[in-house]
Design a protein around this nucleic acid. Structure first.
Lengths: 242, 242
DNA sequence: AAGTGGTCTAGACCACTAT
DNA sequence: TAGTGGTCTAGACCACTTA
């Protein structure tokens, strides 16, 4: 009552038993029409409340069936050390989404330090655990880098380790920079990840270097519920500058 | 048109010029009623499209005024390398929130590998940029570690570099493990960060080691909008195991 | 066949902003 | 005062799942 919109009140009502664990993952919620009848509100109100819970990642909508409490599984750890930069999607079930050649677009030209419109390989794959999509991985690599070596992303067997593949092509990756952030999920990525656009996702922008030259860059877009990043670093504490 | 819902089509229409930079941050979008009239759709369709862009973080709604392209403030980068683990809150304005002694609670005993109820120092500080709170930093350290050294967190001047302080106490930190994740903001943290509880926040759980012994652990809780983590790693690619 | 979620129409009132 | 976004009502059709 009072100041709070009805749909927020209803969302609270539904959220509480979910967070308390009184409603087990997989449970079905009352349908939007049933909620509307029960609480004497318009169907738009119950719809709005339910969609809010979907956007929060608490609830999943199955068209034709109902709204269900989402199962939050144990998060998956992407492990990084200063010895190996880890594979693209880590020890997940990897679904190859194909390699194609394209002209580098603006952010990619900057990250790879190539000329505008330079030809690059774009490779994508989807990492899943127990058939649940966890992370979408997109990698860009200048085509010139491995041309004629039979070590292009298209030639190699589906993902034989980036560092090994480049190493065999004479490119010794010796440095990696990762930038970690969070942003709302964009529409084109939402589909493979089976998440609602707008949900926050973890993003790792990673670039591999051969000396000062960037040789590959990638985006890892991962579900916030399932992804954690683990960095294990040895600190070589040489005498420090003041 | 065909299969795609109209509101998605309209969202695409509006998204393109924003992402291309043709619509500068701060620009006002057509109002929902104007869009509805212009494109001959219901007002619900334009509303749905605009709210989608809001949920994606591209657009901001100012009630009574209009929808505006969001100014994306430059996020603050927390920089990490394999030589130094960076200070707690990085180069932000640091507000000391005090040090106190407490009994280690369950997760902390595990992270510090100490007995249940062991005495630890807890130090907190808040990092801000331009008077906007960016990250809340909480550090735990066994009291036994620096007892009688005048190098306890309470003795040292407000944050004179953890690694230097411990080093002066004979504790040579040589390894750090960071676990990065995202979770909803909890109530007690919401106040200093001036954010609503429930909003997603970036969390870095960091533990410093002296050999195999954990000597300090900390939580960095940062606003998703303002925080990025930058890891610069040298890859010492010794001959790799297969 | 009944029920469900996704989408859509055509209205409405309120509090707020801009002028 | 006119326009705006936020909320809300009362319907509707479709594709889909469930029984």
């Amino acid at each position: 009552m009072g100041r709070q919109p009805r749909y927020l009140w209803m969302a609270d009502l539904l959220r509480r038993p979910i967070l308390n664990g009184e409603l087990a993952p997989g449970s079905r919620l009352p349908s939007r029409s049933r909620l509307a009848r029960t609480y004497n509100v318009s169907e738009q109100v119950s719809r709005h409340a339910l969609r809010l819970l979907v956007s929060e990642g608490l609830v999943e909508a199955r068209p034709g069936s109902g709204y269900y409490v989402r199962a939050v599984s144990q998060p998956h750890c992407f492990s990084r050390t200063d010895r190996s930069s880890g594979s693209g999607v880590g020890p997940l079930d990897r679904a190859d989404l194909g390699t194609r050649i394209e002209k580098a677009s603006d952010p990619i030209t900057q990250r790879l330090a190539v000329r505008d419109g330079e030809t690059v390989f774009r490779t994508r794959c989807l990492g899943s655990a127990d058939d649940v999509p966890v992370a979408l991985y997109t990698s860009w690599e200048p085509a010139a880098l491995t041309r004629g070596t039979l070590r292009t992303p298209a030639d190699a067997e589906p993902w034989t380790g980036l560092l090994d593949r480049l190493s065999a092509a004479g490119v010794i990756v010796d440095r990696v920079v990762e930038e970690v952030g969070v942003r709302p999920l964009q529409e084109p990525e939402a589909d493979p990840l089976r998440l609602a656009p707008g949900l926050p996702v973890l993003v790792v922008e990673r670039t591999h270097y051969y000396g000062h030259r960037p040789v590959e860059t990638s985006d890892l877009v991962g579900s916030v519920d399932h992804c954690r990043l683990l960095y294990r670093l040895s600190l070589s504490r040489a005498p420090r500058r003041p």
